[in-house]
């Protein structure tokens, strides 16, 4: 069923690129791997589940709440922890370790209050998906693909044309110089955290509506996003989209021809192959120090 595989690839591709873009926004301005971002993704799904399925809020209201709350939490973490750490020293290594610590805390708080088991959100009854050329796709999956295209496009346009987007690009290319020109880099990093967290919580919510969500789901998806980012050349948005396409294709082909349980391992094998033959990714920027 080749059409079904293509649909699956499109679905995976849109999720990976949405998560990847939300991560790359933070990475470009903040200059470190925010691993706690995976907990924000999970929070989006869990809040949607909590407010819609358990507390019986209406669908639009619970969607708004579950975008708003994780974004607030993301901003709060940035202000409380990472802004202060950045002032103390500028080695990214400490930021990554601190972010690992935050990830551990948030993941355990989620499983403490909401349980370790997988949660699902059901809208109405289970329906047979829409049939397209012999393949099936559910309404939620169509929404995921559409939402991802719209959000990714809007984010790229935002970066290109809006004032804040231009500031973000300035800070990501040279923070000190943009400070000299009167751009408050803390402010810009806060903006990118806000937008990144909002996108991430939307991604988490979409995943929760489509399949189910466990406390570790966010980590898995974020890992795919990071792999897509590395193979696309770190820091480039176009490279990220290409990387996401390559990763999604390889994963679903391996799931179809070998077994779906090896999808994680496939992602890792692709990462290794790229590190051996193309350590700089297939576009743009260089890894520092590697060449020396």
């Amino acid at each position: 069923m080749p059409i079904q595989i293509i649909l699956n690839i499109a679905l995976q591709f849109s999720i990976i690129s949405l998560v990847g873009i939300s991560f790359l926004l933070i990475f470009n301005t903040g200059k470190y791997y925010a691993i706690h971002h995976s907990a924000i993704i999970a929070l989006g799904g869990y809040f949607a589940c909590l407010f819609y399925s358990h507390l019986g809020f209406s669908l639009p209201l619970s969607i708004i709440i579950s975008i708003f709350l994780p974004t607030l939490i993301g901003l709060f973490i940035e202000i409380l922890i990472f802004r202060n750490l950045r002032k103390r020293n500028n080695e990214t290594f400490f930021l990554i370790i601190a972010s690992l610590g935050v990830y551990i805390i948030m993941q355990n708080i989620i499983s403490l209050f909401l349980g370790d088991d997988s949660k699902t959100i059901r809208i109405g009854e289970v329906q047979v998906g829409n049939e397209i050329l012999g393949a099936y796709i559910s309404n939620v999956q169509i929404i995921i693909i559409a939402a991802s295209i719209i959000l990714c496009g809007t984010t790229l346009l935002f970066l290109k044309f809006s004032k804040i987007g231009k500031y973000m690009r300035a800070v990501s290319s040279n923070e000190e110089l943009s400070n000299i020109f009167g751009i408050n880099s803390d402010h810009v990093i806060l903006w990118s955290f806000g937008i990144g967290s909002a996108l991430a919580s939307i991604a988490g919510m979409l995943i929760a509506f489509d399949t189910d969500i466990t406390p570790s789901t966010g980590f898995k998806i974020l890992f795919y996003g990071v792999v897509a980012m590395i193979i696309g050349g770190v820091g480039s948005f176009k490279g990220l989209i290409g990387g996401a396409l390559l990763l999604a294709t390889a994963q679903h082909l391996s799931a179809y021809y070998i077994d779906s349980k090896w999808m994680d391992a496939t992602a890792y094998i692709i990462l290794i192959l790229f590190l051996i033959w193309k350590p700089l990714g297939f576009s743009g920027k260089r890894l520092e120090k590697v060449e020396i």
Partner: peptide, 28 residues
């Protein structure tokens, strides 16, 4: 031999990947 082609932050991410891969082998 593979992961030491990278440095600093990338090395942390690569070892994260190795950990995921080893866990996935144990689990699958």
């Amino acid at each position: 031999v593979i992961s030491l082609r990278t440095v600093d932050d990338y090395f942390i991410i690569i070892t994260l990947g190795i950990q995921v891969a080893i866990f996935s082998v144990m689990n699958n």
